[in-house]
Amino acid sequence: MKNIVVIGAGTMGNGIAHTFAQTGFKVNLVDVSPEALDRGLKTISTNLDRIIAKGNLTEEQKAETLGNITTFTDVSEAAKNADLIVEAATENQDLKLKIFKQMDESAPENCILATNTSSISITKIAAATKRPEKVIGMHFMNPVPIMKLVEIIKGYSTSKETFDAVYQMSKTLGKVPVEVNDYPGFVANRILMPMINEAIETLYNNVAGVEEIDTVMKLGMAHPMGPLQLADFIGLDVCLAILNVMYDGFKNPKYAPNPLLVNMVMAGKLGVKSGEGFYDYSESKKAEKVAKMFVK
């Protein structure tokens, strides 16, 4: 597999495109607008600069990486010579089914269709195509260029050849692939999301404040980031969508989203992406933090 297509230039999509391109693959990055693609490329460039600053990349390698990425707004045009397509659109089942149908119609017969979904059934996604044996889950972790784990999820009809090809491809990217079966939330989010939801429940019941809850988990459980801060980084809308998928799939009340999470999403408090979630990420707050650095 040499020609890679990534659908979606958002947080996960640009990270996946970055990872493939830095490994030497030619990547067609697709999104609905030139503006979204420009934002994705800007993020990739900024992240490459961070790697250069740490001494792990040269300016020449950055230029090669960016040169490996071509942008498209037309899936059909981007996918016509694809060997592997990785869909990284919003965690919305109807949208993913629509994209996979379009991918199936546009890509060559031998092309593998992968999804970066964090919770939606691979079997259901595969059913929207005429090549279910070539559909697989390839769930990267955020930030993609840094995190080593990739959950490789087989649908009911995924062939051994498809699984083996994607498993080896993940190793080529420097990742650690883990085989996972097709159940709601897979492994990572089946364990993580109930923890985040319980942290929100703890806040909702006024057991402790945001920073106190996160401090307990960081210092007491050796988590690098508290669950509420992590939820902000994932996106509270994404957390809600994943919990809803698991609740619908298992019919178990332990996966029911806390009312505080539901209300925050309805109010547009989505975390880092909106500037406010459990923490404040607004420009004014950043300026306040900088000012405090100069106050004795």
Rank of each mutant, 00 (worst) to 15 (best):
E283A: 15
L243Y: 06
I112R: 05
P257K: 10
T11W: 12
P253L: 01
A199P: 03
T117C: 13
T43H: 05
K80Y: 01
M195H: 08
A208G: 10
I44F: 01
K269M: 03
S274K: 02
D74F: 03
T73M: 11
H18C: 12
A199S: 13
F233R: 12
I146Y: 14
F294Q: 08
I112W: 02
S274T: 03
S106V: 10
A78T: 04
H18Y: 11
K171E: 00
H18Q: 14
Y247H: 10
T73Y: 06
L97G: 15
E87M: 08
L236Q: 04
K101A: 09
K218N: 14
T158E: 00
A114W: 01
R39A: 15
T65L: 02
A63D: 08
E60G: 00
P108Q: 08
K269W: 00
E288R: 14
E60T: 07
K160R: 10
I234E: 07
G226D: 04
I136E: 08
E77T: 14
G235N: 07
V144E: 07
I120N: 12
L261T: 11
D280Q: 09
S33Q: 01
L240C: 13
A79G: 05
V75E: 07
K273P: 00
A17H: 03
V5R: 04
M138Y: 10
A267T: 00
G137M: 15
D94H: 03
E133K: 14
H223Y: 15
F20E: 02
E179C: 09
R39P: 08
M246S: 09
L230I: 12
A36V: 06
L149A: 10
P34Q: 08
A82Q: 03
I122L: 06
K286E: 01
F250K: 07
K2D: 05
K285V: 05
D104W: 02
K2L: 08
A88Q: 01
F233W: 09
T129E: 04
F100W: 05
L219T: 04
K285H: 10
P177T: 03
F250W: 06
Q61G: 13
K218Y: 10
T73N: 10
D164R: 03
E198M: 10
N189F: 01
E211S: 14
L84R: 04
Q229N: 13
V135M: 12
